[in-house]
Amino acid sequence: MRRIRISVRDAEDFTALRLRIDHPMESGERKDSLGHQIPPWFLTRLEVMLNQQAISTIKLGPHIAKNPAFSLALKDIKKGDEIVVKWFDNRLESGEHKRIVN
């Protein structure tokens, strides 16, 4: 199971939702020390839900850094709101993580 960290912080005029997901994010363009191509392994999609309602989908390519971190800007977030993040990768693995805003 992959670890996802979800943090919610107040920024200037919005709420910053920060996501960090433990994932190798191999682009498929690199070779190892023996010259063998390292196979691609990367997140393909993230889905963000607020209080059980889908608010955004992020399609991803292979050129996101290892253990990717994203920051999204939300408004009208209040204490007790439930944020759920679902992830999917190109090896058809998936998972989700929940966070209650406090």
Partner: peptide, 19 residues
């Protein structure tokens, strides 16, 4: 990355790290 921002809670801003 391709982010949809159609929901009124989403503001048009995205940050990430590239490799």
């Amino acid at each position: 990355a391709q982010l949809d921002t159609l929901h009124p809670s989403m503001l048009p801003r995205l940050s990430a790290h590239l490799q």
